[in-house]
Simulated assay, not measured.
Amino acid sequence: MKTTESSSHYDNLEEMSVAELISSMNKEDQTVPLAVNKALPAIEVLIEKIVERMAKGGRLFYIGAGTSGRLGILDASECPPTYGVSHDMVIGLIAGGDSAIRKSVEKAEDDPDQAWQDLKANGIHELDTVIGIAASGTTPYVIGGVKTAREQGLLTGCITCNEGSSLAAEAECPIEVVVGPEFVTGSTRMKSGTAQKLVLNMISTSVMIKLGKVKGNKMVNMQLSNQKLVERGTRMIMDATGLEEEQAKERLLKFGSVKGALDDWKQE
């Protein structure tokens, strides 16, 4: 029996009050960061290897199905606006293609060959990294993609919530975050999904910091895609330079990023 499929510690959920339901879910959720903490050494190893490759021009791919695939796409899609990187630097792929982001595509995850085809369609090469995301660790789409990627000499990792899974066996740098039974038996969109999101946050954020996309604790390369971000960038420049708001905003809009504006200011 997979841990992710084992029976919930709670029963007769339909008889619980809303207060009991959310209190119980919150109690279970509090165990997730502790499980992630146990996996930190494995997460560190993978991040160090990713940074080394991406510094040489490599890219990061996430592959997954269902909730796991959507989490990978979410993490990848947030890198360009947050860190000012190109959209093909971190790429999320989901079994069934983009239509599966919103609606389930039947049996798409059962094809062990499709992930590699999807990776090849994105011009996969030897400096790239492939991370398979599957709570169960048994999804054929993900296992097949990771297995072939490793055979082709790529760096491979995985994020799974069961110990000793087939996926972990195929990955060079496996990450296993065992969160225990879900509140609703088998509903891995809950604790397992939360654990995967936390690990993805660690990976992408640490990689971007190590690649120089953060200065101090500020997102100096963020895209100025809305008024809130323009105001945030203006404050960053004001704090770093002592300029008045109007002058800081003018510099920000002129150079298109906080980093560009500050680099120019330092040269004056």
Rank of each mutant, 00 (worst) to 15 (best):
P181C: 12
G180I: 12
G180W: 10
V184L: 14
L229T: 04
E182Y: 01
T234R: 13
V230C: 03
K197D: 06
N221R: 15
G212Q: 00
N201W: 11
S225K: 05
C173W: 05
G216H: 03
I209G: 08
V199N: 07
M222S: 07
K228F: 13
R189D: 14
G233R: 04
S187I: 03
Q196L: 14
A195F: 07
Q227S: 12
V178M: 07
V220L: 04
K228C: 15
S204K: 09
T205F: 11
M222P: 15
S204G: 12
N221H: 15
T234Q: 09
Q223A: 14
N201S: 11
S192Y: 00
P181I: 13
V177L: 12
G233S: 08
G186I: 11
R189T: 09
T234D: 11
M208V: 07
G212F: 01
M202I: 14
A195Q: 04
C173T: 11
P174Q: 14
T234K: 12
M208E: 10
G193A: 08
K228A: 11
N201G: 13
P174T: 13
V179D: 02
V230T: 02
S225F: 02
S192H: 00
V220F: 03
T194P: 01
Q227P: 11
S187K: 06
P181W: 04
M208P: 11
E176H: 04
S206D: 06
F183A: 10
K197T: 09
G186N: 06
T185G: 03
R189P: 07
